[in-house]
Amino acid sequence: MSIYAIIFYLLGAVIVAATALAITRRNLMHAIVYLVLSFIGTALLFFLLGAPFLAVLEVVIYAGAIMVLFLFIVMMLEIKPEERTLGPWLRQWAPALALSGICLMIMVGFLFLNAGGPGPLLLVTASPLAFGRFLFQKYWLGVEIASFLLFVALVGALYLGRDNSTTGG
């Protein structure tokens, strides 16, 4: 087992543990901080998998912008932690766990049925220069559409978030 494989499995364990902790916290603030850890681990995994530019973007967008947005909303709405009740908790999680487990087993089964095809991943790195050239040569239309989508989302968030106490709506 090479050093890269060890790093991969360590990072995978950290990401899965942090995500599992995040989705089970009753206090939203704790959940978001665990999620930041999970996204930083994902960014390191991106770096290991040859995408340094996307690793930086993952930290800036996911662990930075999106999680700070969640934190702002949690602080703005003054959300109390949910009370600890075991019965409803089990009723909520048991079906989700069962269905997710079945889906995971089917996915893993498919992967091992096709074990001949996917070989080992080779260690290569896409430099940000090459990646940017590729993106703007082949997917320039997609980039424009993505920017338009972000603009529409900005307008929508402004429209929904405006203070409508004066208009009575």
């Binding site: 890269y4 494989a5 998998l49 996917p118 070989g119």
Partner: peptide, 14 residues
């Protein structure tokens, strides 16, 4: 250098 099999990567994502 190789890292891990592709299927392990997909299992982590799943």
């Amino acid at each position: 250098a190789t890292i891990v099999p592709y299927s392990h990567m997909l299992i982590l994502a799943a």
